[in-house]
């Protein structure tokens, strides 16, 4: 549907986006994940028609978008802070795009009610945007963006301005709303949890380049490199001899790097790795244990069910759970990303 083909965007002399190619298919949500300054927002703005592209091609349904102004693209853009129009009521904000298209008044009113219901803000139509909380503002902004069923919804860090618990709840709601509305969306974020909660597919950007893209599982299970693995949320990323120790303990061929989820290492009596406990902390789900393993370094691990939390200074054995680690192909070795 949306085809981004070898797109470069320059800001003066520096290239904010370099040679990026991506596709978004009908009905799917693609998350572009990357640290701030990686060019992900610039890419989004280029798709929206707010930044001119220096090279490449952006097409929708096969039609080149070059020269099509923002307001004729039929997309909708939702900003980090919502950018509700403060001089209009919530209802007027949501109905904005409908009024622009001269839809009959009654239809607008019905659709506004419907949309507010969809985002969980039923009865808020008469409110002044200034009186809304951060989460409510984002919900209203989402309703406004969805009003005319955009061909493509562009979301620029829509949840980043919210606090953590609200963000988690709203991410799930967002996923459900987008699925229910069948919306195709391009979604930009620096928060991997947000990306995992909302998206079907994910693209990783760094320094203006596209590092990797694929389904959530593909990306998660095969991070392109160590940095990508860290960014995806792996607490421990190892390479060289440290990686070899863990890989051989897991019974996997050595020579590559490895990224470990917290639950990849579990405290158990017969584990192949030994180490000294530095600290342990009880959390609602698991007991998190930091262990110093000779030849590897400090790693994050958890206790398996029913084991008492170890004390600092205690010697423990660790087992490696194979499906909870990701092998990272080293530079020069064979792999999809040389």
């Amino acid at each position: 549907m949306l085809a981004i083909d070898q797109v470069t965007v320059n800001y003066g002399a520096t290239a904010a986006v370099r040679d990026v190619s991506l596709d978004v298919r009908a009905g799917e949500v693609l998350a572009v994940l990357g640290p701030s300054g990686c060019g992900k927002s610039t890419l989004l703005r280029a798709v929206a028609g707010l930044e001119p592209i220096s090279a490449g091609r952006i097409a929708f349904d096969g039609a080149d978008l070059a020269g099509v102004p923002t307001h004729k693209r039929g997309f909708a853009l939702m900003f980090q802070d919502g950018q509700l129009f403060n001089h209009q009521s919530v209802g007027a904000n949501v109905g904005y795009a409908l009024r622009i298209r001269h839809r009959p008044r009654r239809e607008v009113a019905t659709r506004v009610e419907e949309l507010l219901e969809l985002v969980g803000l039923a009865g808020y139509a008469g409110r002044d945007p200034a009186t809304l909380s951060g989460g409510e503002r984002q919900r209203a902004a989402l309703a406004r963006a969805l009003a005319v069923e955009p061909r493509l919804l562009l979301l620029d860090e829509p949840l980043s301005a919210l606090d953590k618990s609200l963000r988690e709840r709203l991410a799930l709601d967002l996923r459900e709303i987008l699925t229910r509305a069948g919306t195709t969306a391009l979604f930009v974020t620096h928060d991997h949890e947000e990306a995992f909660a909302v998206a079907d597919r994910m693209a990783l950007m760094r320094g203006g380049h596209l590092v990797q893209d694929g389904t959530l599982a593909e990306v998660w299970e095969h991070p392109a490199d160590a940095e990508a693995a860290s960014f995806l949320g792996y607490p421990t990323v190892l390479d060289g001899s440290a990686a070899d120790v863990v890989l051989s303990a897991a019974g996997v061929a050595t020579g590559d790097g490895v990224a470990l989820r917290r639950s990849a290492l579990q405290v158990s009596a017969e584990g192949p790795l030994g180490g000294v406990v530095l600290s342990s902390r009880v959390t609602p789900d698991v007991v998190r244990v930091e262990v110093d393993v000779p030849g590897v370094g400090v790693v994050a691990s958890v206790t398996s069910d029913g084991t008492a939390p170890p004390r600092p200074g205690q010697d423990v054995r660790l087992s490696v759970v194979r499906d909870r680690l990701a092998v990272i192909p080293q530079r020069g070795s064979s792999g999809p990303f040389p």
Binding site: A48, G49, L50, P69, T70, H71, K72, R73, G74, F75, A76, L77, M78, F79, Q83, F85, Y96, A97, I100, R101, R144, A145, A147, V148, L154
Partner: peptide
């Protein structure tokens, strides 16, 4: 970005 939001919702300049 208010103007950009309006553009993206289909408002001409």
């Amino acid at each position: 970005r208010q103007r950009q939001a309006a553009h993206s919702l289909g408002a001409s300049p």
